[in-house]
Amino acid sequence: MLKLEGVSKRYGDENTGVLAVRDLTFEIGEGEVVTVVGPSGCGKTTILKLMAGLLAPSSGAVTIDGRPLVKPPLEIALVFQDYSASLYPWMRVAENVRFPLDPKRVSSAEATGRVERALESVGLTRFADSYPWQLSGGMQQRVAIARGIAYQPKILLMDEPFGALDAQTRAELEDLVMRVRDEFGVTIVFVTHDIDESVYIADRVLIMGPRPTYVEQELVVGLPHPRDQITSKEDPSFAHLRGIVYRSIRESTQAMASVAKDPER
C-alpha cells in the first residue's frame, strides 16, 4: 500500500549537500509490521519522513495506494523518539491525544470515544488529566502511541520510539505495539537500531546499508504469533535471524568508518 520507487534524498545543494538516501525501492504491505534497522546516521529518520510526507524526495516517488504523496496524508501517523518534545507540555494527556482529531473531520462525541479507547489500550486511563511532564518516559511514549492510535491511521510510522527507555519498559512497549497491531489492524513501520527489537516485533526486517542508504538485505521473520519476550527469543530461528542482522550491520558500520577516513568522499 505504501511504495517507494527509486527515491533519493539530498540535504542541501548539489555540491556541498549530503546525499542521505539513494535510489531506494521497497513496498510496505497492508497489516505488516516492518522494522527498519541500520547503523546510526545512515538515513533511517530521513526515510520515515519521506514516507510521512514531511520531506519531499529529491527524485523518485512515494505513493500510497497508488496516489503520489505530496503532503502528510491522513492515512499516516507518526511517533517520534523524542516524546518529551513531540508531546505538547501545555496540553493534558487527553488533550494531546485528542489534538490531531480536527473538529472539522471528527465529531466531538466520536473524538471523545476514540481518546478513551486509545488511552485504555495503552493503560493510561487514570492519567487522562495529568500533564505529560508529570509522567515517566515510558508513560509519555505510551501517550504518543495513544495519540497515533486515536488518529486511526492505516499506517503507524515509529522512529526509534523506545530508544531512550530502559530495558524493562522497552519490553513492555514492544508487546504493546504488537497488541495494537492486532487490536486496530494497523500497518506499522518501525525504525530501530536495536537488533533484538527489530527481529522480535517484525514480520519483515529491512536492513539498511551505510549512507547514502539502501536496502542491504531483507528478512522475513517466521516466528509464530503471539510472541513472547521469553519463548520467542529462545526460539532457534530468532537467534539465527538476529545473527544475520548483527553481521550485516557490523559490516556496514565498518564500511562507514572507512568512508569517514577517506577524504575523497
Binding site: P72, P73, F80
Partner: peptide, 12 residues
C-alpha cells in the same frame, strides 16, 4: 519537532 508533529497529523 513540535511543528513536524502537527504537520504529520495534517493539523489546520
Amino acid at each position: 519537532l513540535q511543528l513536524d508533529t502537527a504537520r504529520s497529523f495534517q493539523i489546520s
